[in-house]
Amino acid sequence: MKKLLLLLALSFSLFHCTDPVDLPSRFEEPELVVEAWLTNKSEPQTILLTESQDYYANRLPTPVTGAQVIVCETVDATPTSNCFVFEDEGEGRYVWTPAPGETIGEVGTEFGLGVQRGEEQYTSVTTMNRTAIIDSISFQFEEASIGNDEGIYAQLYARDQVGIGDAYLIRTRINDTLLLRPFELSSVYDATFDPGTETDGITFIFPIRFSINKLDDDGAPIPLVEGDKVEVEVWSLSQEAFFFLNVAGDQIVNGGSGLFDIPVVSSPGNVFNVDSGERALGVFNVAAIAAAERTLEE
């Protein structure tokens, strides 16, 4: 009995240990981080350049200014004369502004990114892939269930393109507010969440259709009310961008610091240092967008 009590006491002390433990992050020098999420919309396109920082640094990333940034159409990774110069607007923002009605390109076009920062050069190549086909946004009444309150919720009816390997990102605005928390963004692969399901050319599965609703801080969907406007965009993703977002999302919601949390790693991107050939931080994607909107009326 004494041994049992001792074991229980030891277990209690282990589960109630609150002493902080600082682990070395092995951070050495800041690296360039490239956030190049471009689209085929006729609106200013922005590339963000910042520096990486120590995992324990509690501050915003340092912006990179004074760089030269250009995007060109390419053929077999060789630039053509059709290029877009991104102007330095400060705070790490590099912007290309199209003329009225102008877009950066069409589905199937290959693009190359070039970044010159001092003596360092970085490059990436991607293709604007096709996006999904949106049919409609529907509003449906749902009875109360586990995790859901009774009310009216939105669903996105969109269909995957025929052919294995299409990847998408779903972004939602409700009453002009963009839902940007990690669990409010949905990445889609051939109408489901992951590759390998062998689904193709079908309507997005129910959890993805339902994912366009606003969520509370506990991740529960919030019913719509009369007058709510729902806007949805489906962005096409390259394979590299899809996996980048999935790893980044897992890392962002990985903050429990528990025994079974996944290790902290950088998301693998598709930007490379020209001289060393090493992979830089960040990703370059040019998306085609399908969009729809609907307002809940009486």
Rank of each mutant, 00 (worst) to 15 (best):
F210Y: 07
R209K: 15
V225I: 08
E35G: 05
E142S: 14
F284I: 13
A154C: 01
G90V: 10
I152Q: 02
L23P: 07
Q116D: 11
A248H: 07
A67C: 11
N213A: 07
N285S: 08
V107Y: 03
F84K: 15
L60S: 13
N254Q: 06
I202D: 15
K214L: 01
W37D: 09
G90R: 06
I262W: 03
P44R: 05
D88A: 02
P263A: 02
A280P: 01
K41I: 02
Y153R: 03
N148P: 05
K2D: 15
I170N: 01
D217N: 07
P24Q: 05
I146G: 09
D228H: 00
L113M: 09
G165S: 12
S42T: 01
R209S: 11
V253N: 04
D19Q: 06
Q251S: 15
G201P: 14
E87F: 10
F206Y: 13
K214S: 04
W235E: 09
F242A: 04
V230M: 00
G118I: 01
T199G: 05
L38W: 08
E28T: 04
A290V: 03
T126P: 15
R130S: 12
D261F: 02
T78F: 07
A77R: 11
L49G: 12
D200V: 14
P79D: 10
G163W: 13
K214T: 01
L10E: 02
Y94C: 10
F86P: 08
A57E: 04
E89K: 11
A292D: 14
T177M: 06
N58D: 15
S13G: 09
G114V: 08
G92A: 13
L185M: 15
R209H: 09
I146S: 13
F139H: 00
G108D: 05
S236F: 07
Q53K: 14
G147E: 04
Y168L: 02
T62S: 08
S187Y: 12
F15C: 07
V264I: 14
I137P: 01
L180S: 12
V95S: 10
A290N: 12
S136D: 14
F27R: 00
A77S: 15
Y56F: 14
C17Y: 05
E142V: 11
G163C: 14
N270H: 08
